[in-house]
């Protein structure tokens, strides 16, 4: 069992951490260097965590659990106008990021209003590429009820946030509803506001756990971090991608941030130690995000084996 953790420490000797994680059979999901500090998102075998903890202590670093690591969460606002941004949406996106998730902010083109709110097929498709989604709504209960049409056709778990207290029965299509957010025109700084952000994180974590449980019933042929590692090794061009995270992890695959037409064949041809090629165990298709490559690992029931 791999445990998601976040290492924060100095740049000096941080390669020892990376080496140790690789020796233990773990994965480095993301490496962010900011001047003299480095933040590493790691997956480490649970039984070997003590070794990493000891090394972290030696390097005067900090190791915390990042429950959302290896997932991508969309933060959706009805538009990108001043009414929703920056405060609430940025606070939520940043808080998700601090807990290890890769958060993407999406502003709908025509999501405003009570009666006129709409979502396009493209937007729904883009949101469905994530592992979970947080919809940020306003202060009126009536509006939040009506705006259900925006997320009714979303297939990933939807966490809805809004202002007023509302019973769950009012929002049958939402995975969970987190009140006390709504439209706010200042940054979250009070203890109660930070507490609300924690509740959103908890709701997202529960949503991801449900997806994990569903995947466990019919396990994936191989794990997404392993695909990420193999792609990184065998398609070295990915390291030259301008994206801060050239390979984004999802619970059921990865998104490789290279042009689809040019690199599709290279990604399909990625071979594992067992002699299996990626195209035999995964569906490789164009992503809705720019012209990236979306890799969706097939479950054991379709390929007939797990490795």
């Amino acid at each position: 069992m791999l445990e998601p953790v976040m290492f924060t420490g100095g740049v000096y000797k941080h390669d020892l951490v990376i080496e140790l994680v690789e020796d233990l059979g773990g994965y480095v999901l993301q490496r962010n260097v900011t001047q003299s500090e480095v933040i590493l998102l790691l997956l480490v075998p649970t039984e070997d965590q003590a070794a990493l903890q000891a090394l972290t202590g030696e390097l005067r670093g900090e190791l915390v659990r990042a429950p959302l690591a290896g997932t991508e969460v969309a933060v959706v606002t009805p538009t990108l106008a001043i009414h929703h941004l920056p405060h609430t949406a940025c606070d939520i996106a940043e808080y998700l990021r601090r807990h290890g998730a890769k958060s993407n902010m999406i502003g709908l083109a025509r999501g405003v209003g009570r009666d006129i709110a709409q979502i396009t097929e493209y937007e729904a498709g883009l949101i469905n590429e994530h592992d979970a989604v947080v919809f940020i709504f306003g202060n009126f209960a009536e509006c939040i009820r009506k705006k259900e049409s925006l997320y009714r056709n979303i297939s990933v778990p939807v966490v809805v946030t809004g202002g007023p207290e509302m019973p769950a029965s009012d929002l049958p299509y939402a995975f969970e509803y987190v009140p006390a957010v709504g439209r706010i025109s200042h940054r979250a700084r009070k203890a109660t506001e930070i507490g609300t952000l924690d509740r959103i994180i908890a709701a997202v974590a529960r949503a991801l756990d449900r997806t994990r449980a569903e995947i466990a019933k019919d396990p994936l042929t191989t794990s997404p971090p392993r695909v990420m590692d193999a792609v990184r090794e065998q398609v070295p061009e990915v390291e030259y991608s301008y994206s801060p995270l050239p390979i984004a992890l999802n619970l059921n695959g990865v998104r490789v941030k290279l042009p689809f037409e040019e690199y599709k064949d290279a990604v399909e041809a990625v071979t594992f130690d067992e002699g299996v090629r990626l195209k035999e165990i995964a569906a490789i298709k164009p992503s809705r995000m720019k012209d990236y490559i979306l890799v969706r690992i097939l479950p054991a029931s379709e390929t007939g084996f797990v490795f």
Binding site: G138, N139, F140, A141, E142, G163, P164
Partner: peptide, 10 residues
């Protein structure tokens, strides 16, 4: 309607 919260927030 039942929008006391909305009024307070606005």
């Amino acid at each position: 309607g039942q929008e006391e919260f909305g009024a307070r927030k606005y």
